[in-house]
């Protein structure tokens, strides 16, 4: 995604529009079976953001919530791009903003590939 200048402004505007329309939600609020496309990965603490990025939570990736834990529905098991499955707690998952899967108009996703990598 574009990190500079007008691109970022436009992107934030788009995000705000989607949130208002109720089309986006933090990953931490999603239930098993829920699918979507990652719109933004933002966290106050820098290392959480980098950790999420390194595990594959990046703008444009498709996610599917597969399971949750038996106590307090925590943690979550999330499949990224139909490939790797990652466990994370709802607290960290809230740093990931998820929009509808088929919506291509966000400008936040750089991925042109539709469904997952090769696996």
């Amino acid at each position: 995604m574009d990190e500079h200048g007008g691109g970022q402004e436009r992107q934030l505007f788009e995000l705000g529009r989607l949130v208002k329309a109720g089309l986006t939600q933090p990953l931490g609020l999603m239930r098993p079976g829920g699918v979507g496309r990652i719109l933004a990965v933002r966290s106050g603490e820098g290392d959480v953001e980098r950790g999420l990025l390194e595990m594959g939570f990046v703008e444009g990736a498709c996610i599917e919530v597969l399971h949750h834990g038996f106590l307090g529905r925590d943690p979550l098991a999330v499949r990224i791009n139909q490939g790797m499955t990652v466990a994370l707690r709802r607290g960290e998952a809230n740093a990931v903003l998820v929009g509808p899967l088929l919506d291509q108009s966000t400008g936040a996703g750089s991925a042109s590939r539709q469904e997952g990598p090769i696996s």
């Binding site: 595990m55 990652v86 466990a87 994370l88 960290e92």
Partner: peptide, 8 residues
């Protein structure tokens, strides 16, 4: 620490 763990 955040959990962030791959389920292989």
């Amino acid at each position: 620490q955040p959990l962030l763990m791959e389920l292989p």
